[in-house]
Structure formats: C-alpha cells, structure tokens
Design a binder for these strands. Structure first.
Lengths: 109, 109
DNA sequence: AATATCAATCGCAATAATACGATTGATATT
DNA sequence: AATATCAATCGTATTATTGCGATTGATATT
C-alpha cells in the first residue's frame, strides 16, 4: 500500500527511520555537507552549488526543515538556512547508539 | 521524475544516501536492533517478532542484504541472517564522519 | 509605481517504496 | 512418494518520492 505501518513500531524506531529518510538522498547529503563546511548559514546560492533546479532544491530544504535538521531564517527576499544544532545532536546520539553496539558473536562467521 | 540524479553527486554522497535509505524504515531498524541484541544470527522467527507478513519481512531483509548490511547463511529450509561486520563498520565510520563535524558558527543563532 | 530578485508552492509526469496474498522452489520428515 | 516447513518471488494495489516548469508572493531597487 506504499504506506508505512508506523503504529506497530516504537516511537524511537520511527524517529530513527525518519531521520535516516532525511539523509537518504545525495542532494540532501550535499546540502548538509555544504552547510557544515561553511560553518554558518548559506543562502540561496545552494541552488548554484547543486546541479538541480531551484524548485527541487527548495523541496529538499523543506524536507530537512520539516524533520528539524535545518531551520530557515527569513530575511526577505533571501532565506538563510542553518543546521539546527539541537536536532543535529539528537541525530548524532541516536545513530551513535545504534552503531556503538558491537557485533560480538556472529554465527555466520 | 521519481528517479534520483545519482550521476551528478559524488560516489560517497550516493553511498551515504543509500546506507541511510536502508535505515529509513522502522521495520528495518527493528530487524537490525533485533539482530544486534541477539548478538548472533536469527532465523525466520523475525517474522514472529515483527508485526508484518512474511513476504514483507522477506522484502526488507532483501534490501538490507542488497546494501550489504546483512548477509544470509542458507541452511535450508531455514536462512540465518547476520550483520555483515565489514559493512556495519563502514556505515559507522561514514555516519561518524558526518556527525563529528561540529557546527561551530551558526548565523541563525 | 514599475521592475528585478528570491524562494515557496502548484501541477504534472514518472519512478520508487510499502504491503501482502498467493504461488513457487527447496529441503526435511514421515 | 507424500507431506510439511520455510523463505523467496510474483502480482497487484496504493502511496511516496523525485524532478522541474510555471506561477505566485514578498521585498528591494530604480
């Protein structure tokens, strides 16, 4: 049915999946990397950096904003996008928790 | 067009996005958590653990296998799924690299 | 006031993902 | 040989995602 059965999973499992989904596109990875590299906000020149149309970039930014990873400071007619440090920290912790689990015994060798 | 323009991004950006996509569903998170918790392989009883039909679970396992996170040891008629430690380590490093980047200056406050 | 600039949104087309019933293929079990 | 068990795959329905041209709304600029 193309619709995820979120009800049957824990809130945390859904949150991890949602955060992962936000990272599940190379354009959004590129956006995040760019914003991190510039160590500050970057305005609409993201469109110039990315090989995608303005409408497409805007949509990716919207998704990252929706999940909370970015927040946009409106300064018309420009918009400045920044990493939301709180959510970024949350993501760091949440992914860290999964990956720090060691696979000590593995029956498949 | 519903198809990601992978050509215009770096291999690494695409790999990160692909790994994230593998984690972008609560069922797959639950599968990984279960396999990690049991610290060893788990067989078809994943179907009992998850509130999804056998066909659906099989499909999620296939995706995780495809990206490399799992490998299945066939022992008919059972199949034992394990975390592929090499790929798991790769994912740990690749996500670690992103998240260790500090947001030192942030113009949006 | 007219114009230029920027970013969000709409509308559309095409492809991907989610879910599951039913079937199939393979191997133990009897 | 007949049957039971397990997991993959097929087929199908439904929804989500990706992408962009075109439009819209808002604010500077002239």
């Amino acid at each position: 049915m193309g619709v995820t059965k979120t009800q049957v999973f824990t809130e945390k499992q859904n949150r991890i999946a949602d955060l992962a989904k936000a990272l599940a596109h190379p354009a959004r990875i590129a956006i995040i990397q760019h914003l991190l590299k510039e160590k500050s906000c970057v305005c609409g020149d993201l469109v110039e950096v990315l090989p995608l149309a303005q409408a497409t970039v805007s949509q990716h930014l919207k998704e990252l904003k929706q999940i909370g990873i970015l927040h946009g400071e409106i300064n018309p007619p420009r918009v400045c996008y920044c990493i939301n440090e709180t959510v970024w920290q949350e993501a760091k912790v949440i992914f860290g928790e999964i990956f720090e689990t060691e696979v000590s015994v593995n029956c498949c060798g």
